[in-house]
Amino acid sequence: MADQYLDTVEKGLALHPAQASTSAAQVDALFWVLVAVCAALVLTLVGLVIWFSVRYRAGSDRPRPGGIPDKLGHRIELGGAAGLTIAFIALFAWAGSLYLYLYRDPGGDLLTINVIAKQWMWKLQHPNGAREINTLHVPTGQRVRLRITSQDVIHSLYIPAFRLKRDAVPRLYTTAWFEATEPGEYHLFCAEYCGTDHSRMRGKVVVMTPQDYADWAQENGEGESPARAGERLFTAYGCSGCHRGDGTVRAPRLDGIAGRPVVLASGGTVIADGAYLRDSILLPQKHVVAGYEPVMPSYQGQIGEDEILQIVTYLQSLSPGDWITESGG
């Protein structure tokens, strides 16, 4: 059933990249305005150079003006500088505001797909547990969030048809969002040089109608969701022994901690983002929470990158007091 999308893959010489997300047209509009402004400036300059070159060539006996008077010259320079500055600030404001809209996580309960990059493949996991490698199935008409990290070097997830790119940085969890519009197949590239097979770290994005996506997810969604798996791992690795229930005299409770400020024993405060949670699992001595002894052992070498991401996903799915409610207290 996914096969019906295969024949729409980009082929032949394109002169314009496919537009397959809501942001593609917005980015292109800005791009073409920028190109038009730049082309106008270049053509003006080249036009003047050619005009002066012909008119004032050494062989021409046309009378020469005595040069531009100083005062007028200063006006031309300052006028040019002021005009360009105003134009540039306008373009900056347009590009910056669009960036804020596109780059900032919209928040809310989006379809969130976990992405782990490694030399040289993309490993993806959908909320219903479906896993895939180098292929990303997504529905149209719905905002999708990617939660991206890397388990080795820096990579960069690039989907030209969505005008979307985000570096996959080890330790960090970056997010990106898009809303696909056109069913079909599109390139998925690694855009940050990552070693031998960088140019083969490619895949495809399959954009499907919501119904087809639901069917696809149903067929492939085996096992647990990442959050559910994280909850299981949280117990299996023994985290819950100290961080949940009666153990919390030795360690801080973790329900609802994600995204909130944490006061440290060293006096500072950090926001408990994905990188903080990950560090706390692998390098527990790095940020010791105020009021607790540095007794937690490191899990370095004992836990996989995908498992860490599942635990982080689980912790980020919790709200303050979740554990109290479920234990009936």
Partner: peptide, 13 residues
């Protein structure tokens, strides 16, 4: 053009 943030997301690298 590359300094224009939203466009650079596409053109970077």
């Amino acid at each position: 053009i590359l300094a224009s943030l939203a466009v650079d997301i596409h053109l970077h690298d």
